[in-house]
């Protein structure tokens, strides 16, 4: 699969990574190269194979319903670039 500029722009938007317009063609070529190399997998017949869910041969372990965490607002906010009045602060969001 060869990626065009528009597709790269779209996935960059999905991934929330700003990519300058002039970088799109180079990136498209690079990503296409990787995808082309990946496509050697097409030669493997996997029609009767189940996808692996986990290499751990076990099921989900349960935690008991106890309050064991929280009550640490300062630690939660300590690394925030901007916080105020106990909140994280971000640029205005319009719903």
């Amino acid at each position: 699969m060869s990626l065009d500029k528009a597709t790269v722009a779209h996935i960059a938007k999905l991934a929330r990574i700003a990519v300058p317009e002039q970088d799109l063609p180079g990136l498209a070529t690079e990503l296409s190269g990787i995808l082309k190399w990946i496509e050697q997998l097409d030669s493997v017949d996997t029609s009767k194979v189940e996808p692996l869910s986990s290499v751990v041969n076990a099921t989900l372990r349960f935690r008991e319903d106890n309050i064991t965490d929280g009550g640490q607002r300062d630690a939660v906010l300590a690394n925030a670039p901007v916080s105020a009045q106990g909140f994280f602060v971000v640029p205005k969001v319009v719903e």
């Binding site: 990946i38 997998l41 493997v44 996997t46 194979v49 189940e50 996808p51 692996l52 869910s53 290499v55």
Partner: peptide, 13 residues
């Protein structure tokens, strides 16, 4: 891609 790769993983395992 993703499901195919996970199937390949099954084969490798």
């Amino acid at each position: 891609y993703y499901v195919k790769a996970q199937k390949i993983r099954t084969l490798i395992l």
